[in-house]
Design a protein around this nucleic acid. Structure first.
Lengths: 183, 183
DNA sequence: TTGTACATGTAATCAGTTACATGATTCT
DNA sequence: AGAATCATGTAACTGATTACATGTACAA
């Protein structure tokens, strides 16, 4: 209950949303449903148990909104521990595994504006670019060695994977530039 | 056991690999481990139960390889039902949900060479391009309406999402052209 | 012979999916 | 009054993760 609990990706996504604004479970569901955010399911069987877990770990708490009818008067809000957990997640060093499943990384970046400094956002993007470039190089080396023996469809798919990482990299570079303009 | 069982994504991935070549469970694990294929876990607790499920549904069967020492003499091979299940998966129409989590689509395309005709691979890519373009348009419409109200990080992430879909689309177009050259 | 790779499993736990179920509030 | 939306949940099932456990074959 205390100690070393780490939320799942869904849990972190919810923490990020609640950090923007205190919301009801239903409102959280709507975000996942309507914005196609990150591919999360909006099913009640996912959201409500997740909220309960976060609540059990005291990362979120239920608060009453005065002046609303009883049935829609409660929203979830981050606790101090919840904000700390979110920050920990946002600040995690970028690993090779993170790069392979980049969706978590982009989700983290999307939530950063409300939580960590611009300097830290910049560091994140720099780190991201390095990690992505490294992985793309790794794939490129693999391609050089094995492309000849691959069927056209498999090779095309593999090369597409590399292209996508190059796309990530160039995005990181461009966003980094935009961020430098601002600060 | 008979009837309406549908393998998971991992199950389908395994069917695809075994369709290329009969393999031991260990050999399947190595593919996931060494080629970073699709982000699957190579843990024995994932692979062996999955093989057992496929085996229970008679989609794969264990066969002995003559002339090998007993401990490494057995491999899994697709049954006729297994090949049918694989083909069904490869031929599924492309839905909006598939587009949002495109990894399954790419995996399907990678396995197509060994299983379906070039004409069908072409149709797949055409369908894919349409579906991806549609979704990118949808996101673009959302962006036009909401970009102004979004924080820089969130907006950049969202726009990156759109770029990635454009990248998918252009890849589909290029691969389609390559496929036309061949046939 | 000692380590490395081959090879296969199980048990505990946890989270997510689908489907079901219920009731309050607001809009028309 | 009836429909839509807000709002929250539970139960059964399935599958994945981690960690543990075991043994064989081969190469240095």
């Amino acid at each position: 209950m205390t100690g070393s609990y780490t939320p799942t990706l869904l849990g972190h996504a919810i923490l990020g949303l609640l950090n923007q604004e205190a919301r009801s479970g239903h409102a959280v569901r709507k975000v996942f449903e309507q914005t196609a955010m990150g591919h999360f399911s909006s099913s009640p069987g996912a959201i409500y148990p997740a909220l309960r877990r976060l609540s059990g770990e005291a990362l979120v708490e239920r608060v009453r909104v005065p002046g609303k009818p009883a049935a829609r008067a409660s929203v979830y809000r981050l606790t101090r521990r919840g904000r700390a957990a979110l920050r920990r997640w946002l600040r995690r060093p970028i690993t090779r595994d993170d790069v392979i499943r980049e969706d978590t990384l982009l989700l983290r970046f999307a939530f950063m504006a409300e939580t960590v400094s611009v300097a830290e956002q910049r560091r994140f993007l720099e780190e991201l670019k390095v990690a992505v470039d490294d992985y793309a190089e790794e794939l490129e080396a693999f391609r050089k060695e094995h492309a000849a023996g691959m069927a056209l469809a498999a090779r095309a798919t593999f090369e597409h994977g590399i292209e996508l990482y190059r796309c990530h990299s160039s995005w990181a570079a461009r966003t980094l530039a935009r961020l430098r303009e601002v600060s």
